[in-house]
Structure formats: C-alpha cells, structure tokens
C-alpha cells in the first residue's frame, strides 16, 4: 500500500489559515483612536485654506464653550426654523442618515469665523456625507448672524459654539442645540 502524503493537505491548510488571518486584520477597525490636541479644546486653529485671515482670536486660552453662552438673539426655536428654512434638500443627499456637526468661534470683536463641519454616523463614528451636503450645511450656519451674548457681561468674551444637524434620508430631522 502506498503511504499517504499529507504534505499537499498541510500546505492547503496553511494557505487558508494565513489568508483568514490577513482577512481578519483587514476587517478589524479599532473602535477608538486617541485624539491628541495640544491647544485648548474650545479653540479652532487657523487654516489658510479655510479661514479668513482677518478673523482673529484675542485669547485662545479663555474661550467659553457652554452650550448656551452664545445665543441666537431670536431664540432657540427661531434658530431651528431659520436653519431648516435655509437648508435645501437634494436627491443626492437622500442616502445619508447621520449628523453634520458645525463648530465655529465668536471673537472679542463680535465676529464669527473658523467654521468647521464634520459628518458622523448615528454612533458618532466619522462618516462621508454625499455630494456637497457637508459644505451646504456649513454655509447655512455661516449665513446666520444674529448671535448675542445673553449670559455674558464681559463685552470682549469669546465663544466656541456648535450646532448638530441630525439628518434623516437627506433632510434635517432635528437641530440639536
């Protein structure tokens, strides 16, 4: 009787296991990445590709960030309705369900600037919004200029503010303030 050679079988198994291991590594997406920020978290650094160089911050270490420190003069409900009425849903946006978060600063001269937008899935992980949705949402918020320092007596106070647009099927489902 001819002895059975197990060599081809072993090679086959090793090939499969190596492939499975590589596949597993490729699929593994870590759920966390430690963000390293070397400035005050309320501050948004200047980006020459995005920002107006004339917009200056007086003190990047003393920016207030409370949710209601910088308010919309006409109130929260008007802020919500102003955003919704200026937002133009498009068919290209319909595939998107998640968030567009817009952050910006108000400086000591009462000007706003350094607008940033981020797209997120519903679990807050980074997403890729379709077409120009992110840019459009940012421009909607940039168009608002009715801000007031309702809770601050210091006229030179500076603020960071964010507005979170919850998007459902490409339309604003809710403005989270």
């Amino acid at each position: 009787m001819r002895p059975v050679s197990y060599l081809p079988l072993i090679i086959l198994l090793l090939t499969f296991s190596t492939f499975a291991c590589l596949q597993s590594q490729a699929n593994h997406q870590p759920k966390y990445k430690i963000p390293i920020v070397t400035h005050d978290l309320s501050y948004i650094p200047f980006d020459p590709l995005l920002d107006d160089p004339n917009f200056q911050i007086c003190d990047s270490t003393k920016i207030s960030s409370g949710r209601n420190r910088l308010q919309y003069a006409a109130g929260r409900n008007t802020l919500r309705s102003d955003i919704v009425s200026r937002f133009s849903p498009q068919s290209a946006y319909e595939s998107f369900n998640g968030y567009i978060v817009i952050r910006f600063l108000a400086n000591c001269k009462g000007q706003t600037g350094r607008y940033r937008a981020a797209s997120l899935h519903l679990d807050f992980s980074p997403a890729q919004a379709p077409s120009n949705l992110e840019q459009h949402a940012k421009e909607v918020v940039m168009g608002l200029n009715n801000w007031s320092r309702a809770t601050e007596t210091n006229a030179n106070a500076e603020y960071s503010k964010f507005i979170n647009l919850k998007i459902k099927n490409g339309k604003i489902d809710h403005v989270v303030l």
Binding site: P35, S65, R67, L120, F124
Partner: peptide, 18 residues
C-alpha cells in the same frame, strides 16, 4: 467629557469606547 461638550463627538466617542 470636554470633547462631547464642544461638539467633537467623533473624538469623544472614540475615547469613551475605550
């Protein structure tokens, strides 16, 4: 905590996930 409070939700959730 301060990431969540400033609207940096992706960064905040990344930390709290850990």
């Amino acid at each position: 905590v301060p990431f969540f409070k400033r609207g940096l939700l992706a960064e905040g959730v990344s930390l709290i996930n850990k």
